[in-house]
Design a protein around this nucleic acid. Structure first.
Lengths: 149, 149
DNA sequence: TATTGTTATACTCTATAACTATA
DNA sequence: TATAGTTATAGAGTATAACAATA
């Protein structure tokens, strides 16, 4: 059982909480976002790489997920292919389909992005008390649950 | 004084907290980000509008802040001007300089973005207990303090 | 004939380089 | 001569429309 001091536990009006939380999340995310290992990979490309973490996908499926038209995804996949971050293979059961999947290098890049960003956040969190870290851990769990829905 | 149940207050290792928190923030921010009132304003344009909330700025200063080259900012400012979201005026003390500032419409658009996103988050938070909201409020305060540094 | 993916062409946003106006 | 901003031109990324291959 953990108690939180009165100073941090002051009840906050619902609307104010929402606005404060939105600000905090957007601001921190924006800053996290700047921690990136390479400049030659665009946000759209990263987004496709992230989508491929779930497993191989067709360009059409990727276009749908990324809310982009098929020709645009053709280009994006081609550029990621040139960069060696994804590979393309024919679908043996349907010759029209192409399967795009992460290469080891692509997977490694994603891991590096995560590592860099976690590292940056880690430096910030060094400045917190155990009590504050409990609150942050609780918040992470709650946000994770909420953003599932 | 508020107590948090043992289930939510379990001590989490530092590295795990960092990773969980990063995930929660990035994920929620990404979702928040999708709540946008108009499709004809790009992310770069929004970013410039946000920068102008602090007050009028020269294109050169904006280019620096947005890590973009001056010609790119010239275009972005021109497009925001065409959309009626910013205005440009000559600097009376230095004829080379141009001052870009938000119009009422630009300010209104920013307010609408905030309103939409807060609204979305508000819907999510309706599914939380008072205890959870305390944890989120505490987290917001901590993140706000941390991201100042 | 419908579906999957690619190529053709055009538009926007970015960049570097060259130019104009002012200090 | 240096600085602030814009215009000239070129390279990505996106779009719609047209095409090729497969079901």
């Amino acid at each position: 059982m953990v108690t939180i001091s009165a100073a941090t536990a002051t009840t906050v009006p619902f609307d104010e909480l929402t606005e404060d939380l939105r600000r905090a999340i957007v601001r921190t995310a924006r800053r996290l976002h700047r921690e990136s290992p390479r400049d030659d990979v665009t946000q759209g490309q990263y987004s496709v790489l992230r989508a491929l973490q779930a497993g191989p996908a067709t360009p059409g499926r990727l276009a749908e997920q990324e809310t982009v038209r098929p020709p645009a995804m053709t280009r994006t996949v081609a550029s990621l292919d040139r960069l060696g971050l994804v590979g393309r293979s024919a679908d043996v059961r349907d010759g029209r389909r192409v399967l795009v999947s992460l290469t080891d290098e692509g997977r490694e890049l994603l891991a590096e992005v995560r590592r860099l960003r976690t590292e940056w956040l880690s430096t910030l969190l060094a400045d917190t008390s155990a009590e504050e870290r409990e609150a942050l851990a609780a918040a992470a769990r709650i946000l994770h649950r909420l953003s599932d829905s």
